[in-house]
Design a protein around this nucleic acid. Structure first.
Length: 595
RNA sequence: GGGGUGGUAGUUAAGUUGGUUCAUAACGCCGGCCUGUCACGCCGGAGGCCGCGGGUUCGAGUCCCGUCCACCCCGCCA
């Protein structure tokens, strides 16, 4: 059986033949995409990753091949030998190979196939559940094939660019140690050391710093990272980063390298020339203007701070919030005067999950007067002041949130995106990159009433803020920077602490005692005492970048074998129970069982 | 952990106030016919635990409770 494949080799892929090839004999292999049996002639669209070619089984060309072709079904794998010929007047302009066809002189069935549970086509509306269960079939679809091919090309750009810049691609271990702070770890039991566990890396952070201590100077890795947290459309439990680190640099140096990679990637994959340098804005500016640390710069609708303007207005909610140290922020939803009360209530519902207690609004009517439940609390001169600040015009609606800055920013920052989507304010096919810099070093956690590292505990403070680390942690800025594309964080990094004394102080500020620091990060503190160069780096989120390059809303469309939102693999049926013998060998007794 | 949307042939969907045109359509599948199709066409056929469990009712795809699964969001993601 399968004699053909031993006799001869495939000569072309199914997307490559053109009019210029008419007359030559070819050997094609692929999947039966579609079969049209006319009793006399049988037409088969033969598919592989490059495209589709029409094969004709004509009894006048070859009786045997024609007879055999009647049995063919969708998704059978076949090999065909035949001659390329013109389609004459029957050209199909929809496919690249539409001007030609292959008249088969020999057919061999290489594998039969059951009918697929869903059609192998570009546009399908099959549930994600079914597609994930049969992911190997889903991956036959041209869209996903294209996405994974682009992903391959992105990885090649990364390797080419970083190699040219003198980076070394070095590998780091997967079986490491669980550390405090950060995301939950995925954990791997040790058979040899019963009762002890490895953890999978959330990122190769510490190893890349140690590479710098070792003198490798410039490192990168396309690294898999693991975080046991709940999923989102753009979050998977295992994901890929381009992890980079450099010695003897400032933030501008690593940023320049990153821009080089992205410019090259957009050029090679999309044929788009990105203007450089990318825009830079500070964290404080991003929060003030856009309410989020990953601003989408493709549209306006910026936030305005009205705290000073409304400090004394008759609306108690506003005045009290400002008096208590909160803020009143507003968004001018230009030209939405025709929105109904119901539309505005929908916005209020949108904002509530972010902690906002309400959404005040006013409309500017034809005569310039205000309409809305809170309008009456504003004196004419107060209205004028607000109108000036928000550039309010006739037909505009303004919405207000009064709350702690954190809540007001989250509510309006996300509302801004929501409204932009709803009103189609976001131009298609545009890419707006920016750097967000000077992140805070610490963030305060209301629940545990303590500061924790906003980035990670190895991030260096701005030099002028070192003194304030313990006294006034909330004000300390870090030498940390994120790269943002279209409102999505696609990477982040920092200059690291390369001084063991400063690192100790950092742990202190975080409430990590000397003993604990030594137990968890002793190797790092020690390494920093043996001549650590100043260093810093960044990691790019490959999955999110590919999402944006491929123009999809789901990270699952750029990952070959993704997990569901509940962290399961529907194809493997993983995770799964272990049999008792295996558990015993690992010294594990299962206490709880969630089914 | 919380909120929302959905689950009916292989697939995608329709199914009203609960009631023998309530189990339906398209695509796919199977059989037959067809020499220029490319969403081929024509004729015929098979295919169902209405996610699962319980309840209300004379009667449940439809109403109620629980539960499972998928997706979106909040929390979480140094």
């Amino acid at each position: 059986m399968n004699r053909l494949i031993h006799d001869i080799k495939r000569s072309h892929r199914c997307g490559s033949l053109r009019e210029a090839d008419i007359g030559i004999e070819v050997v094609l292999m692929g999947w039966v995409h579609n079969r049209r049996d006319h009793g006399g002639c049988v037409f088969v669209d033969l598919r592989d990753r490059e495209g589709v070619t029409q094969v004709v089984f004509d009894p006048e060309v070859d009786k045997e091949a024609h007879a055999l072709s009647g049995d063919l079904r969708a998704e059978w794998v076949i090999g065909v030998v035949g001659k390329v010929r013109s389609r004459g007047g029957n050209v199909n302009p929809k496919i690249k190979t539409g001007a030609i066809e292959v008249a088969a002189v020999r057919l061999e069935v290489l594998a039969k196939a059951k009918p697929p549970p869903f059609p192998i086509e570009e546009e399908i509306d099959t549930s994600e559940e079914t597609r994930l269960k049969y992911r190997f079939l889903d991956l036959r679809r041209p869209g996903l094939q294209r996405n994974l091919i682009l992903r391959h090309q992105f990885n090649q750009v990364v390797r080419r660019t970083l190699d040219a810049e003198g980076f070394l691609e070095l590998e780091t271990p997967f079986l490491i140690k669980s550390t405090p702070e950060g995301a939950r770890d995925y954990v791997v039991p040790s058979r040899v050391h019963g009762g002890k566990f490895f953890a999978l890396p959330q990122s190769p952070q510490l190893f890349k710093q140690l590479f710098m201590v070792s003198g490798f100077d410039r490192y990168f890795q396309i690294a898999r990272c693991f975080r046991d947290e709940d999923l989102r459309a753009e979050r998977q439990p295992e994901f890929t980063q381009v992890d980079m680190e450099m010695s003897f640099i400032s933030p501008a140096d690593i940023q320049a390298v990153v821009e080089k990679i992205l410019v090259e990637a957009w050029r090679a994959l999309l044929g788009v020339e990105l203007p450089t340098p990318f825009q830079r804005l500070s964290y404080d500016e991003a929060m003030a203007r856009f309410g989020v640390d990953a601003p989408d710069l493709r549209f306006g609708l910026e936030l305005n701070d009205l705290s000073d303007t409304v400090r004394a207005v008759g609306f108690k909610v506003f005045a009290d919030t400002v008096a208590a140290g909160g803020v009143v922020k507003a968004l001018n939803l230009h030209g939405t005067g025709d929105w109904s009360r119901k539309d505005l209530e929908e916005l209020e519902e949108f904002v509530k999950p972010y902690g906002a207690k309400g959404l005040a609004w006013i409309k500017v009517k034809e005569d310039g007067s205000w309409q809305g439940p809170v309008a009456k609390f504003f004196k004419p001169e107060e209205q004028a002041a607000v109108a000036a600040k928000l550039s309010l015009a006739v037909g505009d609606t303004a919405v207000f949130v009064a709350d702690r800055a954190k809540v007001a920013h989250a509510a309006l920052g996300n509302l801004r995106k929501h409204v932009a989507k709803k009103r189609n304010l976001i131009p298609k096919g545009t890419f707006r990159f920016c750097w967000v810099t000077e992140f805070p070093l610490f963030e305060y956690d209301d629940e545990t009433q303590r500061y924790f590292a906003a980035h990670h505990p190895f991030t260096a403070p701005q030099p002028e803020h070192v003194e304030a680390m313990v006294k006034d942690p909330g004000r300390v800025k870090a030498q940390a920077y994120d790269i943002v594309l279209n409102g999505i964080e696609i990477g982040g990094g920092s200059i690291r602490i390369h001084d063991s004394v400063l690192q100790q102080r950092m742990f202190e500020a975080l409430g990590i005692g000397e003993a604990e620091a030594k137990a968890k990060f002793g190797f790092l503190l020690e390494a920093l005492q043996f001549g650590a160069p100043p260093h810093g780096g960044l990691a790019l989120g490959v999955d999110r970048i590919m999402m944006l390059i491929c123009g999809t809303d789901s990270i699952r469309d750029v990952i070959a074998f993704p997990k569901t939102q509940k962290q399961t693999d529907l194809m493997l049926d993983a995770p799964a129970r272990l049999d008792p013998a295996q558990l015993a060998e690992l010294s594990i007794r299962v206490a709880g069982d969630k089914g």
